[in-house]
Design a protein around this nucleic acid. Structure first.
Lengths: 259, 259
DNA sequence: TCTGCTGTATCGCAATGCAATACTGTTTAT
DNA sequence: ATAAACAGTATTGCATTGCGATACAGCAGA
């Protein structure tokens, strides 16, 4: 392990390496051969062999009997299941999101902040979109999403500023905002109005509105989001039809009241 | 490791143990202390300490700063994300499920067979139900679910019989079928009609219909399912309104045609 | 303040995971 | 066809690394 020199004595390297094997699978690498795994993880071929073998025996990797390639197993979904039970917000959020989705008949999402990214935790797709926009677990740079901006809009000045300065940005479409001053404006507007809007950030012709879910300290860690097509919606209709129920839903989920 | 004596030399015990720590979290144990983890995994306290520490450092466990308890982290959802990209059926299924859900305005699920259980892979909840019925990754005994029966109905005799004889059953409601002969009837009926119906198996007052998704060999490994309330639906309306589009959807997802 | 708890740190031993290497089987090019 | 190239599988000796007993610290409640 050349990267991390002096890890304390209660660090189990073999476990960390094994998990790095799991992390090697992503949207561009849905299945991998042993050799490819070795390459991607930077580990020795025989190390990967043992780790992958163990993961396979323990049911974490599925092995195609003919190509010998490895793929994520159903166990990966079971972990998501366990996650849902452990997240204190999800239990309240789910029924309210369902109602919102039924009412709006538009795609509704629930996302949380995870470091400097947002991650989709619950998704209720209503319209056909591209695949990545309809499955859970997707991480996106927080500054580029309506969810991230809605959440940041509730944070105290110093934290918010630090985020705006330092958090990463990535160009997804030609219209992705890469200018941090514009992002600051967007967040301040969100702070004033109680919700954030973003346009064409992740995909073109997409309009997203997000309302933060505040904890007892007023600081949000999650948001409810509604994503619609700019073909069918504009600012006015958004504000009239979508924003009010969206805010209601967010407030209903917020744990502050129940404490 | 007393349980598995003679594991071959390419087995990394530390990795397996670490993963067992992850598996210790489930619906009844959403968060665990170090001591509780040691108990549940049957491992030594200091072993668990090191493993949990490693998992925490690597971002797999979240540690509550005040209670010191450990919880699943967002990484668990990221694994689900990777899983979705790797599952060859999910990409086709998703848009079609969305359409079906919009059309029926009822809860639609996509589940696969996983050993002797079924596992929910995609869920589009439309009505409020209990929490477990609306999140992905849930495993249920295949013989008790409409999905499992729909899938088994496409299997050749010997496999099907072996499953009916040996696969596990568990009582979820007072009306859960525990009689294997009845289950055989149900599966045979499904084979004749092309879809399976179940009633009150998992929760009372629930009606579920499932249509198998067959591979090129005619053998199903997945099914589309629609779950409705027996309060609003009966056999007739189910057959008229739900079954036809359900079968259409299942056929549209089946990969056989595209090969 | 004492007692019992739960989480954190230390340490010597040997079990265990490491990487080099050799083997097997399947695919590609000549 | 035959050979060469490649990917997956097995073996082995060595020392690194993970093991668990034990001792320490920080916080409850009595």
């Amino acid at each position: 392990m050349p990267d991390a020199e002096k890890r304390d004595s209660l660090f189990v390297g073999a476990l960390a390496k094994g998990l790095r094997v799991l992390r090697a699978f992503d949207e561009t690498h849905p299945e991998l051969s042993l050799g490819a795994l070795a390459q991607r993880t930077g580990m020795d071929k025989s190390t990967v062999q043992r780790l992958a073998n163990t993961l396979h025996q323990e049911g974490w990797l599925t092995k195609d009997p003919v190509t010998r390639r490895l793929r994520p197993s159903h166990a990966w979904l079971e972990l998501a299941y366990a996650y849902y039970w452990s997240d204190p917000l999800v239990g309240n959020a789910m029924p309210k999101l369902i109602e919102l989705s039924r009412h709006l008949e538009e795609t509704v999402n629930f996302a949380e902040i995870s470091g400097d990214h947002t991650i989709y935790v619950l998704r209720l797709p209503c319209q056909r979109t591209h695949f990545a926009a309809s499955i859970i677990g997707r991480r996106l740079p927080a500054l580029s999403t309506s969810v991230g901006r809605a959440i940041l809009s509730t944070w105290p000045e110093p934290d918010r500023d630090a985020a705006i300065e330092n958090w990463p940005l990535k160009e997804f479409t030609p219209r992705t905002t890469l200018d941090r001053a514009s992002i600051r404006n967007s967040i301040e507007e969100a702070a004033a109005r109680g919700f954030a809007i973003s346009r064409d950030e992740m995909i073109l012709n997409e309009l997203a509105v997000a309302a933060p879910i505040c904890g007892p300290d007023g600081r949000a860690i999650a948001a409810v989001q509604c994503s619609v097509s700019a073909y069918s919606w504009n600012d006015d209709s958004l504000l009239k039809k979508i924003v009010p129920p969206l805010l209601d839903t967010a407030n209903a989920i917020s744990p502050s009241l129940r404490m």
